[in-house]
């Protein structure tokens, strides 16, 4: 068994005319929390959808546990997806099902376990995220942080090998942020998961990730453990880590020269 669970090799992807990734390579090691950081709008969520096989790259390989996701047949892809799960930014809970039924959903779909056994598993998963008492609530009754935790319980219901977090910290208050940071780390260790966290919250990511990729300009611009990354000489990486408003990534959107445009107006 290889040490690398997800291996992205020379990936290129574009949407219409716009190139999102050019010849990018990344590795995600088993049992580790690997983070992908980068400015918003560079297609971090797209990368997760590529790994999940919801989008097909223009070229390059995405090996998941040895199989090349973009080349899989439909049924083989669905088999592979049973071993991975994804936590969407919105949680993506099914609004017409209660929290309990949401967590039970993948179990009922993919296993033939008896209802009493399903109940047991669901309660265990809900206990792990601290929502056992909220099992009868509907998703509309949950706060944002609770919804994300319920979705997390659903994501681990089938004991996947890989779990992908899409912006897990976005729009959370400090307390739920702390809860989610702790959960990602603890679940990863306790369940022997491999985690991919996509985020631009530098502080949180640096505190839990074992390895970090910084993505910008359509490819990886910096990588390493959080310590290595802090010592990275690249101005782009430093600007991102420190959150400087202007620098290698300019403050201004690409535009014609300011003076020229003002003069033009006067004509």
């Amino acid at each position: 068994m290889s040490d690398v669970l997800v291996d992205i090799q020379n990936l290129s992807f574009s949407r219409g005319e716009r190139v999102i990734y050019r010849d990018m390579s990344m590795q995600f090691v088993r049992g580790k929390v690997t983070a992908i950081m980068g400015p918003s709008g560079i297609g971090k969520t797209t990368l997760l959808k590529l790994i999940g096989g919801q989008l097909i790259p223009d070229s390059g390989n995405i090996l998941f546990d040895g199989v090349n996701i973009p080349k899989l047949s439909r049924s083989a892809l669905y088999q592979a997806r049973k071993k991975m799960s994804m936590l969407f930014q919105s949680g993506a809970l099914f609004t017409e099902l209660s929290v309990f039924d949401n967590v039970a959903f993948p179990l009922r779909e993919h296993t033939r376990l008896s209802e009493s056994l399903i109940r047991l598993i669901v309660l265990m998963k809900l206990e792990a995220v601290g929502l056992r008492g909220a099992r009868d609530l509907m998703p509309a009754e949950l706060s944002g942080g609770m919804a994300r935790r319920a979705a997390l319980a659903r994501a681990i219901a089938l004991d996947p090998e890989l779990i992908m977090y899409d912006e897990p910290f976005a729009g959370q208050d400090p307390i739920s942020m702390g809860v989610i940071v702790r959960l990602i780390r603890e679940l990863n260790n306790a369940l022997g998961l491999t985690s991919i966290v996509v985020s631009h919250d530098v502080k949180e990511v640096m505190s839990i990730a074992d390895y970090v990729y910084v993505v910008a300009d359509k490819t990886v611009i910096g990588q390493g453990t959080p310590e290595q990354l802090r010592a990275d000489p690249s101005p782009l990486v430093q600007q991102f880590l420190n959150g400087d408003a202007d620098g290698a990534v300019p403050f201004h959107y690409k535009a014609a020269a300011y003076e020229d445009e003002l003069m033009e107006l006067g004509k």
Partner: peptide
């Protein structure tokens, strides 16, 4: 609300 996407990712 990404429910369809989520369902797809749950195979």
């Amino acid at each position: 609300t990404e429910q369809l996407s989520g369902m797809e990712m749950m195979a």
